[in-house]
């Protein structure tokens, strides 16, 4: 059952792997935006996660420590964003863009001595006989643990936002920071924590790129994945499970275009490579054109700075 040399089970299995970085970054950004903060620095935090994770994994020889290092790297960069926007009340859009540029430069500086090195491998989980189930074995039981962890994180964020008091307070802060403040909630503190979580998730996603997906270090390794993650949050209308769907969709397009290139499709390679980004633009246009459809779900205080004196 192959189409132009593309096997469906392999395609699905590889799209699940391909979508892990954007899924992690998008779910982190979703939490940040739910708290009312727009952090456009996802790309920068991802690439910082990628290099920090790579350096840690190479240094310690442990992929697990590598992922933790990546999360720490992303979170560290987000501390700058939190400090600037929440304490010094800088413009969130400009600060986010600056964060991306800073992250790209800094990662390139740190990574100078790491080009051409191979990181320790992250192996697939041995599921034993489950792996031999036709089709499903390949699709569901052939991955490394991060694939499963990323889906688990989506579930945790969904449940956390929906069922816990902390989640309710976080949503309240994003919906109306003045009201939340009037009720006595610490708006700034909650937002800083959300930004740190977003940074850690973006870093984790970045580390997955440099440790599993590629796996090596080159400058600009994330190649726009952070921007796609931002688009997915809008595409998902700020709903966690839709982030999963959106990530698989974009991951699928990425994998498909690679497969088509390999299969020698007659479409020029350039068009295929630009397709995920083109798709991002199209999705955003469609989502925001229907009057208020995308904006209906957007947190009401998104992107606005909070100052307690009001």
């Amino acid at each position: 059952m192959d189409f132009m040399g593309i096997t469906p089970s392999v395609l699905i299995a590889s799209l699940m792997v391909a979508s892990v970085p954007i899924m992690l970054a998008a779910i982190g950004e979703l939490v940040v935006e739910k708290a009312g903060v727009l952090n456009l620095g996802v790309e920068g935090m991802m690439i910082m996660g990628a290099i920090c994770g790579f350096v840690t994994a190479v240094g310690t020889g442990s992929p697990l420590l590598g992922f933790l290092g990546g999360a720490a790297g992303g979170a560290a960069l987000s501390v700058i964003f939190a400090l600037l926007t929440q304490v010094f009340l800088t413009n969130q859009v400009a600060t986010g863009l600056a964060l991306t540029l800073f992250g790209l430069g800094l990662s390139s500086l740190i990574g100078q001595d790491y080009v051409g090195i191979k990181p320790p491998a992250t192996g697939a989980i041995p599921f034993g006989p489950l792996r031999d189930i036709p089709f499903f074995g390949k699709v569901f039981f052939s991955h490394d643990w991060m694939v499963y962890a990323s889906v688990a994180i989506i579930a945790l964020v969904w449940a956390g936002l929906k069922f816990t008091r902390a989640g309710l307070i976080l949503r309240a802060v994003g919906e109306g920071h003045d009201a939340a403040h009037a009720l006595g909630y610490k708006v700034i503190r909650i937002r800083v924590l959300a930004i740190l979580f977003g940074g850690a998730m973006a870093g984790l996603g970045g580390a997955y790129i440099s440790l599993v997906r590629v796996p090596q270090w080159t400058d600009g390794i994330t190649s726009g994945a952070g921007w796609i993650a931002l688009a997915i949050v809008v595409f998902a209308s700020w709903k966690p499970w839709r982030v999963l769907i959106g990530s698989y969709l974009f991951g699928g397009i990425t994998v498909l275009q690679l497969n088509l290139q390999a299969a020698g499709a007659r479409i020029p390679v350039e068009y295929l490579s630009m397709s995920p980004y083109l798709m991002t633009i199209i999705v955003l246009v469609i989502m925001s054109s229907g009057k208020g459809r995308a904006s209906l779900n957007a947190p009401a205080s998104l992107g606005q700075n909070f100052h307690a004196s009001r």
Binding site: L168, R171, A172, E175, A179, A180, A182, L183
Partner: peptide, 20 residues
């Protein structure tokens, strides 16, 4: 009871009450 600024439009009545 506030004049304004203390309810959240996108949350339901019970959630709004719980927040207070």
């Amino acid at each position: 009871v506030f004049q304004h600024f203390s309810l959240f439009d996108a949350l339901n009545v019970a959630e709004n009450v719980a927040l207070g």
